[in-house]
Design a protein around this nucleic acid. Structure first.
Length: 250
DNA sequence: TTCTTATTTCCTGTTT
DNA sequence: AAAACAGGAAATAAGA
């Protein structure tokens, strides 16, 4: 309760955000995008605190949040197995989780279990609207976390991983980014400003733009996380230091 | 607290 | 002309 209150307070007023939105947002075909907009107040979401009622998208958001929170290597999760709504998610067994997320499965299973009941008496731990933030909830379960899944990600997901994960989830990637060449790792921004806004959301930076995001992308060339692609606008390619984007790696 | 990393912000110039 | 691309330089945020 406390935590998401502060989160919502930290988000700029609805009016100012909406006035900044590029037109692509208003005509944005993805119904899900609205769920990450601050204009959706808690009243609308009251029952979404209960995992049982989550939509598929909220499930995905929860997963993203778990990945950030526990610094999990997103590539180790078979997201296809989580293309389910809250009711289905809640009916997944411990085994199901292990099958779908390997060593991370138990963590997800446990976290979800806490949520199933916490909404009622222990206070809400997970606010769907928080998803974009990577606040390391540190309530002493870090010890039991299998060390092998810990990723050296100081700040949660890096930009290239954020991009990769959107690309890896076609069911939620409605027109943000698109593979140009799946095997070569070539992709293109279809909604550059929308992706920038989402990235900004994740970093709690409402003034992120494609202009700035692309500068960060260009720094990746030197690190060989991205490879340069000839003159094709909005097209990038994963380099040898980018992991987890290949179909075979998943 | 300093050092380092990974951006973020700003900018000038070039290209599409 | 508008939107992207190129990078340099400086500022920042947060982890070690």
């Amino acid at each position: 309760m406390v935590r998401h209150t502060t989160c919502i307070m930290s988000i700029p007023s609805t009016a100012s955000i909406e006035s900044q939105l590029p037109t692509t947002w208003s005509s944005y075909p993805c119904p899900d995008i609205s769920t990450v907009m601050p204009s959706y107040t808690s009243s609308l979401w009251s029952q979404d605190y209960k995992p049982q009622y989550w939509s598929k998208y909220l499930v995905w958001q929860w997963l993203q949040q778990m990945v950030d929170m526990h610094q999990i290597d997103a590539a180790s999760i078979h997201f296809q197995n989580f293309d389910v709504d809250g009711r289905q998610l809640c009916s997944m067994t411990y085994q199901d989780f292990t099958r779908a997320a390997g060593t991370v499965g138990p963590i997800l299973y446990q976290s979800l279990n806490e949520l199933k009941w916490s909404g009622q008496h222990l206070g809400v731990e997970f606010n769907p609207l928080d998803m974009i933030k990577s606040e390391p909830d540190d309530t002493k379960r870090s010890h039991s976390r299998p060390h092998q899944i810990k990723k050296h990600n100081p700040r949660g997901t890096h930009l290239w991983e954020f991009i990769r994960d959107i690309l890896l989830n076609p069911e939620w990637n409605s027109g943000l980014l698109k593979w140009e060449d799946r095997t070569d790792g070539v992709f293109r921004f279809l909604k550059s400003e929308a992706v920038a806004q989402l990235w900004g959301k994740k970093k709690n930076n409402s003034s992120m733009t494609y202009e700035k995001l692309s500068r960060a992308m260009r720094y990746y060339y030197k690190q060989e996380i991205l490879e340069h692609v000839d003159g094709r606008r909005l097209v990038y390619k994963f380099g040898k230091n980018a992991q987890g984007w290949r179909e075979s790696e998943k």
